[in-house]
Amino acid sequence: MKSPRRKLGLSDLELSPVGLGCWQFSKGSNTIGKYWDTVEDNEMQEIVKKSLEGGINWFDTAEIYGKGASERGLAFALDNLEVTFDEAKIATKWWPALRKASNILHSIEARKDALNQRPIELYQIHQPFSFSSIDKQMEAMSKLMRDGHIKNIGISNFSEKAMRKAHASLQNYGSPLISNQMKYSLLDRRIESNGFLKTAKELDIAVIAYSPLEQGLLTGKFHDNPEIIKGSSGPRKWMNKFKENGLQKTAPLIKVLQKYAEKYGVSVSQVVLNWMIYYHGENMFVIPGASKVKQAEDNAGAMSFKLSEEELEDISEASWRVQLY
């Protein structure tokens, strides 16, 4: 099955429904970067290579991921692999904390340098807490687009109300808002019940779902062997969802996922990602991370089959019974 492509929102940007989230490329730099174990350059390059070979054609990174370390590492890997600009699309994000909208304009050259002048296909406001208004932020983003620094504009973690404001503001400046990146998974379906997803579809704004595997919980590996959480990186070992009671609560969903994984000869994580990219149609994209080559291959393999409508609904029903949020 050929890897699918779909347009991101109202743009002409054609992306694979599964991209690669690159937070784990932070090299352990700054507080955000220390969340994951360090991925060495050779491993990073192999992860990027396997992602591309599997049909993934875009990578999501951010300024805050190791103070640009993720951007630099991604660009280094792509350059070493001699990947063309057309073969690999890059999305990155501006960090708004303690900043005004004017910084969007002042810091763009640093982002371009970190990416070794690879085109920024999608530039996103990472969080909705800048000192400046949404309108001022969108005005700055629109100027970047008009001046040719970026090709498309997105946001991240903006609520339904804030998304509407950003969309309306950009319309005034003649630029479309094409995406909003939000946490979404089979265990966290709040965007379906709070009006967010409905509004995104109404406005033709693509949803980019991060943490689709709930930091590995939805792979089933912690259910099969609860002891491995003790050796995992980051704060997961202290989260309730990884403790015995949390694992027991979500076990019924894992059993359903395992059933379909066995049927299709794929992994549980591939069933999860397949559900994510097909259950809501063309405006849903996912960006699982990968700190190991096998995980990159797994991510890409999620596009190699398609669950039936009945199977998608069966998983959905099992999911609603074990929500964590």
Rank of each mutant, 00 (worst) to 15 (best):
G66C: 06
Q24D: 01
S51W: 06
G21M: 01
N42W: 12
E40W: 02
E43M: 13
S51T: 08
T38W: 04
Y35M: 13
G33D: 08
I56T: 13
W23I: 02
S26Y: 00
D37T: 12
L52C: 06
F59W: 09
W23Q: 01
D60T: 05
E71H: 11
S26Q: 02
Y65C: 06
Y65D: 00
E71C: 06
T38S: 09
Q24E: 09
V39R: 02
E46N: 12
I47N: 04
S70L: 05
F59D: 02
I32N: 03
I47E: 05
G33S: 10
S29L: 14
N30H: 02
S29M: 15
F25H: 07
N57C: 13
A69F: 04
S29V: 14
W23F: 09
V48E: 04
D41L: 11
V39F: 02
D41G: 00
D41E: 15
K49A: 13
G54R: 10
I56Y: 01
V39K: 00
K49R: 15
N30V: 04
K27S: 13
K49T: 09
K50R: 14
K27W: 01
G66Y: 03
E71A: 11
K49N: 15
N42K: 13
D60N: 12
S29P: 04
I64M: 15
W58C: 10
A69V: 07
D41W: 08
N57H: 11
G28D: 08
M44P: 02
A69N: 14
